[in-house]
Amino acid sequence: MQDLLDAITTGLQNGDGVDSLIAQSDLPQEDADDFVEMIQALQTALTPLEPREEFSTILHADLLEGESSLLGRLRGMPARVHVAAFLAIFFGFVLFALRRLFGSETAQDMQEEAVVTPL
């Protein structure tokens, strides 16, 4: 019975006739008609659906462009670019630290001078 129903479904999905399949089986005609009708109704009711175009476009962008603009792009760059980026960040950090260090010293000197200088 399960093989027969499977074969009927495949036959209907392929647009083939299923009468010979039913005739060769010992399934009562009334039952066979019920199943064929139900399978055809399922074929009509359960069809593929298209998502909204706006949704597909936005999701595509969220998935791929968000990533490619940052990590994806960096990953795709040659090794020398990675080295250059690392050096730039490193020296940038050193420069920032030096400026903070000397900047704070200069401010401290100015404060001390202000205290020493008589009005």
Binding site: L46, P48, L49, E50, P51, R52, S56, L59, H60, L63, L64, E67, S68, G72, R75
Partner: peptide
């Protein structure tokens, strides 16, 4: 490693997954 390859997989399966989920949840 290649986002464009994932993009192709997305194109292939978006409609199928959407249809499946739609029928299981019943609303868009």
């Amino acid at each position: 490693e290649d986002m464009d390859a994932f993009g192709e997989l997305y194109e292939r399966y978006l409609q199928k997954i959407y249809s499946y989920v739609f029928y299981r949840t019943g609303n868009a």
